[in-house]
Each structure stands twice: as C-alpha cells, then as structure tokens.
Design a protein around this nucleic acid. Structure first.
Lengths: 187, 187
DNA sequence: GAAACTTTTTGACAAACATCAAAACTCAAC
DNA sequence: GTTGAGTTTTGATGTTTGTCAAAAAGTTTC
C-alpha cells in the first residue's frame, strides 16, 4: 500500500485525510500466473495498481492474439475503454507472472470523485501522463521501421524483453515473430 | 461562444456560475488560411476550441511533413504534449482554412483548476474521451492494412477527405501519396 | 483561353515485411 | 541423459508498400 501512495504522490500533493481514504478504498488481490483478469465481452469494473508482477492486454484479430500493452510494477492497469464507458471490453488482460495487485471498483472511484476534488485532480493528471505516453507510442508505431521500434524498446524498457516471450513482444511491436527474430540476429 | 458551452455541457453538467466564468476566460481569435498557430520548438501556451474552420498538426521527419491529426468544428486543439508539460513543442499546428477559434491560456486554466473543481472534472472527462479515441487510432494504425485504414476514414470522417489535400491524408494514414492514390483507384 | 503552377495518377523497380514449413535450441520431468 | 513440449531461428517465396520519374488532370493568373 505504501508503494501505491508513493506513486500517487508523484501525480499531485495529497492530504493525510485523502491518503487515509485511499487506504480504505483499495483492496489487495493476489492471482497466479496465467489468471485472466479481464475477459473480452465482459464489462471491466475495476482499476488495478501493480505492486508486484507482470500483465499484458491483448485482443484477437483473424484468430491471432495481438498484445498491445504490458504492465509491470507501479503501473495502473485496466481495460480503459471498458472501465471508462462500462461497455463490454474488447480486450483480455492476463497475468504473465503471479502478481500482487491493489484493486478499486468503478463505483468506489465515482463516489470518490463526487466527494473529493483532490482525487479528481490526481486522475486528471494521471490521464495527462498516460495520454502523452500513448501519443509517443502512436507516432513510433506508425512512422518508424520495425528495427527502430525494437531498438527503442531495448532502450526504454529492457525489462519487458527479459520477462515476456518473443511472440508477444513481436505482436506488441506490430511485426511477426520471425521478423523480430531476424532483427535481433542482425544486432 | 454558445457553441463552446454546448460542447462542454456534453462532458459534464455545469452550473450557471461556471458558464459565466468560462465566458470570461475564453477569448475569440480569428486567423487566415495557412497561419501557423503553434511552431516547433516554441512552448505552446494556449488551448483552442474550433468554432469554424480546419487545422492540422504535423511534424517533420527525414525532411518530410507528417500530418498526425486534423481538427474541425467543435474540436479542442493544441500541442497537447507541449501544453501539458510546457516544454517546447515537437509539432506544428497550421490552419487549413481561415478559422474562428476560442483560446484560453495555460495560466488561466491552471487557476480555474485551483478554484473550481467543476472545471477539473470537465477536463478529466474530456481526457477520458480523447484517450479512448487515441487508443482506437493506435490499434488501427498498427494492425490494419493501409486500405482498411482508408476505408475506416471514409466511414468515420468523410469530411476530412473533402477538405484536405491527398498528400496530407496519406501521411495521416501512414502511407505514401502514391499508395493512397492506388487504393482509391481500386475502389 | 494560354501559361504557369499545383495536385493527383500511373509505371517500373526496390525494400520491408509476412507466411509457411522445417530445423535448432531450451528446459523441465522422468 | 533422454524424452517431449514449448520457444526461437533459419530458409524460400509472395505480398504490400515505398521511391523515383514522368504523365495527366485540375487551378489560378493574366
């Protein structure tokens, strides 16, 4: 729980009262490797903070699994589209390792928004950061070659490469596993 | 100004007092075609609402201009990365048509955040919507063929095709102008 | 309406990447 | 150490898209 609060303090200064509140609203959950946290077509009602572990978000296209993000320690994860709209998710979230998560429900978060402007601010700032990161990834995905994207991943997030099978990394980079293998042999 | 308030009411219910406040904080600006609203390497200090007109955001890569978004009536536009962080922009924003915009400065918005939680909420919800849209575009860009992306654009935003030269649309779709021309001749 | 300019299309060829199939490697279980 | 499942690499071939160059179509200006 300390770890979660430290992370939140990086978004915005928060009062002791609010910290206390968050303490009561997040609940620890522990799941084993390969557990399915969110399933396609179900509504995702929780937001999770990763204390320890690794997850991936993926969906199915032409019968193939496409991994489009990974989550590790100190990340907030959920199926954002489903969590925000409360419509059925189009993606799955699966644990890559046994993980310790902290969970808050959509309803609890909504009531926090209504009673505590400080929380609204934290989330607004969190979105700003996530938005900027997504924007950067978008530009990379569309306008750089596969080899450049791989090298960028190598620079920015080497931990992903160590904890995730090659096939999932390839689909994350938007290329086939064979192409990724060839890029690596060239370096 | 009415148009701006109508748009904001779609994010969240707002009090008359807050509407009054917004009225005082946004300022109308009018610029001619080809005006450069934001320039690479300068800090972007304003957020704009488009009452009438068309804009594009683009940056330069290997000497070529890459258009990565278009803005039209009722959109909020800015160089989000620069506006949020107040670091120099990496992109340019240019008017595709003479346009009527409503502008608010970063400083004014910050003081609104500090004094009016209602405004914080509007912006938090706006970010949610923008985030979801960006996520969808990201998935499209990476995992669909050029022809599929073009057909999607044709379905979702035919107005873009009518108001923007082909070369800019091609770079928006992440393909060369020649490829786009060939896709169109096939349909 | 001819000249000058811009935008779009077409053609020939090269590069990047996907697909299918098979081989090599890794590693846990016996 | 051998077996077998899972993962990664290699090889051969085809598709998609990019690049360069030129032709065609569309616009603006005088």
């Amino acid at each position: 729980m300390q770890q979660l609060l430290i992370q939140i303090r990086q978004f915005s200064t928060i009062s002791n009262e609010t910290e206390e509140l968050l303490h009561n609203c997040f609940e620890q959950v522990v799941y084993p490797k390969n557990h399915q946290l969110v399933t396609e077509a179900a509504v995702c009602r929780h937001l999770y903070f990763v204390e320890k572990g690794a997850l991936r978000g993926y969906y199915t296209l032409d019968g193939k699994e496409i991994t489009h993000w990974f989550g590790f320690e100190n990340d907030f994860v959920t199926s954002f589209h489903s969590f925000i709209t409360q419509e059925p998710a189009v993606e799955n979230i699966q644990l890559l390792e046994g993980s310790i998560l902290w969970s808050i429900s959509k309803d609890t978060l909504t009531s926090l928004f209504n009673n505590h402007p400080e929380i609204e601010r934290i989330v607004r700032i969190a979105y700003e950061k996530y938005y900027i990161r997504l924007e950067e990834r978008y530009v990379n995905a569309q306008f750089k070659t596969a080899a450049e994207r791989y090298e960028q991943l190598l620079n920015d997030s080497p931990h992903i490469l160590e904890r995730v099978p090659l096939g999932q990394i390839a689909s994350y980079l938007g290329i086939s596993q064979e192409t990724l293998s060839r890029i690596r042999s060239r370096l």
